[in-house]
Design a protein around this nucleic acid. Structure first.
Length: 440
DNA sequence: ATGTATGATTTGCG
DNA sequence: CGCAAATCATACAT
């Protein structure tokens, strides 16, 4: 209470110096009793200041009396104005509310993911679109996607309920505070503007909570996406037939194992048909999977030719057999330089002819050319089988490399450069000048 | 559990 | 944009 005089003084001065005071004071008053009024006000202030000294009942009564005082509205108006001035000058600067890029981003993302925005129908459609866009590599959608969608809608539901809850809480709190302030405005000077400001403060607080909600929802969606749509996680090996087909192509085009787009398509069709891998997306996906396969195969073959020796021999034999059968069946006078590779699409025959010839040749260690294809297929097959069974136990790349020698490839296509691993390379040039294929 | 095989992705080049 | 190389992450075998 010791500062009571100062306060009173300052108030008094404030009022006295306030131009806005005049209208309030002039309601039917003469200048003569202005002094009396001033005294009156002084009394009122005095009472306000001492209110805490009084007992509750006393205070209540006093409050009521004050409330009923005819000067009360005027006084409050003045106080409000003063407050307005000071508070505004303090707060005015930080009142600015930037559009908030962060929030915009979150909103956009949620919208894009189909979490926020229109309900069920549009939402799940957006989700499906997002899924399709993200799952470019594909995989069978139906099961995965429904699962994904289920989880996403779960997230969406949580998000919406939480949002609603926040909204409701915000409204409740706001109205509560507003009521409180309105109530209090009867007993202390509170301007409507202040209430407004308070409301906006509350809204800001709640919207920051909302932002957190949005952020964590975004995170959840991201996690969900990475878990469900990352094709890597859903990797599934090709089945046996598919690998067979691909390998056949690879080894029969060893000099140039780069299937064209059409070839990839063809292979993809063949593989996925055999796989009976339904999945609508595979139409777009399959060729790229084939590309992946060839990319991996090339690199891995090159990296360790020895390891692929057996496989190479096997497929070479297989192709040879196929070729033999095909040409035998066809009963055409096959020119030796162009044995058909039955396993591959027609458009590649030209480029593969050399490979097939070479592989068979080196398998036999003799000129395949001499044994005319149609002549005794069976014996050739036997020979090949024999060779293969001999090769079976190989673990040493160097020895094996002579069976199915990669150097021919070097001479031929050169797709593996000079980077052939040391163990495998045997500098001997291809026996009898390998038919470099005359493709194109 | 551990190691290997393998499909997919990333990175960098031309 | 396709490729090689490195890398990741899973499927599969032991």
């Amino acid at each position: 209470m010791d500062e009571q005089p100062r306060l009173m003084h300052s108030h008094g001065v404030g009022m006295a110096g306030h131009p806005g005071l005049a209208p309030h004071m002039q309601d039917g008053a003469t200048a003569a009793d202005g002094e009396a009024r001033k005294q009156d006000i002084g009394d009122i202030l005095q009472q306000i200041m001492t209110i805490t000294d009084q007992s509750l009942d006393e205070a209540q009564a006093r409050k009521h009396a004050l409330n009923c005082h005819r000067m009360k509205p005027a006084l409050f108006n003045v106080l409000c104005e003063i407050k307005e001035k000071t508070v505004l000058s303090i707060r005015g600067a930080q009142e600015e509310e930037p559009p908030d890029a962060q929030l915009m981003r979150l909103d956009n993302m949620l919208l894009a993911e189909g979490v926020s925005g229109p309900e069920k129908g549009g939402g799940s459609a957006a989700a499906a679109a997002a899924a399709a866009a993200a799952g470019g590599a594909g995989s069978d959608n139906s099961a995965e996607h429904s699962d994904y969608r289920a989880k996403l809608s779960q997230i969406r539901q949580i998000y919406h309920t939480e949002l609603e809850k926040y909204e409701q809480a915000c409204n409740e709190f706001t109205t509560h505070v507003m009521n409180l302030l309105r109530e209090q405005s009867r007993t202390r000077p509170i301007s409507p503007k202040e209430i407004e400001r308070m409301v906006s403060i509350i809204h800001r607080k709640f919207s920051s909570i909302q932002m957190q909600l949005k952020q964590s929802t975004c995170e959840a969606v991201m996690i969900l996406r990475s878990r469900f749509l990352d094709a890597r996680r859903k990797r599934r090996n090709f089945n046996k037939q598919a690998t067979e087909i691909l390998n056949e192509y690879f080894y029969s085009h060893l000099s140039n194992p780069y299937p064209s787009e059409e070839a990839k398509e063809e292979l993809a069709k063949k593989c996925s048909i055999t796989v009976s891998q339904v999945s609508s997306a595979s139409a777009v996906t399959a060729p790229s999977r084939v590309s992946n396969w060839f990319g991996n195969k090339r690199i891995r073959y090159k990296k360790n030719i020895g390891k692929f020796q057996e496989e190479a021999n096997m497929y070479a034999a297989k192709t040879a057999v196929n070729a033999a059968n095909a040409s035998a069946h066809g009963s055409q006078a096959n020119s030796p330089s162009t044995p058909n590779s039955a396993g591959s699409a027609g458009s590649f025959n030209m480029s593969n002819s050399g490979d097939l010839f070479m592989s068979v040749q080196s398998l036999n260690g003799d000129s395949y050319q001499g044994a005319q294809v149609g002549a005794n297929v069976q014996s050739q097959v036997d020979t090949l089988r024999h060779v293969i069974s001999q090769t079976g136990g190989y673990s040493d790349g160097l020895a094996a490399s002579q069976m199915y020698s990669p150097q021919g490839i070097n001479a031929n296509g050169g797709w593996q450069d000079a980077t052939t691993p040391s163990s495998v390379t045997s500098p001997t040039e291809g026996p009898g000048s390998v038919h470099s294929d005359t493709s194109n």
